[in-house]
């Protein structure tokens, strides 16, 4: 930085122009102009959801989920009442998180809840039923997913009288990520895109399951 006093007085230092900085600025400005002219930087397009079938396993970060099957069964009614016809979707889920999670109901809007069920973003064709689905362990018991302990999750829709079960089901499944922030409870949240009211979970996989008739369960 400091020229030594030994430099010849008529040294070339005097005439050296600072060119690097203006040149860099010019390059940066032109790059910016080109990018702007081409339409600016956009986020990369989302990866298309994976297509999975029965028996496939999806890594949802918080859960490792196997799509076992989808079936129709009829169950004898309680207290000798009429038999119930159910459409069930069965999953085998391992909670890879550090804490007990809940099975929870399928996704119903917004950024989604912290349960496994929330990652079932859409089930097509839509199965209404009077009360929506029940989500529990086999036999209707339990709603927890303990860490590192594989569990069966059954999503069951009650079919109304005369309602035809679809031949196959397609389930849009989301993925979780561990996030923490000032306004956010640290924990697992569905991977979403969009802001505010447009915030929607991202579909990680689209799973198609044939609906297998399984007869009567005792």
């Amino acid at each position: 930085m400091t020229a030594s006093p030994e430099d010849p007085p008529e040294g070339p230092t005097r005439r050296r122009r600072p060119v690097a900085v203006p040149l860099a600025a010019l390059t940066a400005a032109s790059c910016l102009a080109i990018v702007a002219a081409l339409g600016g930087l956009a986020t990369a397009p989302d990866r298309p959801p994976k297509r999975l079938g029965p028996g496939a396993t999806l890594d949802q970060e918080q859960f490792s989920t196997r799509f076992v099957e989808s079936r129709t069964v009829s169950e004898p009614g309680a207290f000798g009442g009429p038999a119930k016809r159910l459409l069930e979707i069965e999953f085998e889920v391992v909670n890879k998180g550090e804490e007990t999670a809940s099975m929870g109901l399928p996704y119903s809007g917004g950024p989604g809840g912290p349960s496994f069920g929330s990652s079932l973003l859409a089930i097509t064709p839509r199965l209404g039923g009077t009360y929506g689905p029940s989500v529990s362990g086999p036999g209707g018991e339990g709603g927890q997913l303990h860490p590192a302990l594989p569990a069966r999750v059954v999503v069951a829709y009650e079919l109304t009288e005369g309602q035809q079960a679809p031949r196959e089901l397609t389930i849009d499944v989301g993925r979780y990520e561990f996030r923490e922030g000032i306004t956010l409870t640290p924990g697992w949240h569905l991977v979403t895109k969009g802001e505010g009211k447009k915030q929607r979970p991202v579909t990680a996989a689209r799973v198609t399951l044939p609906v297998v008739p399984k007869g009567t369960r005792s």
Binding site: M1, A3, P5, E6, D7, P9
Partner: peptide, 17 residues
């Protein structure tokens, strides 16, 4: 950081001002 100290052209070769 520091102002370069250049020898004044009119001073002697050792830069003494």
């Amino acid at each position: 950081m520091s102002t370069p100290v250049r020898p004044h052209p009119e001073t002697g070769p050792r830069g003494e001002s």
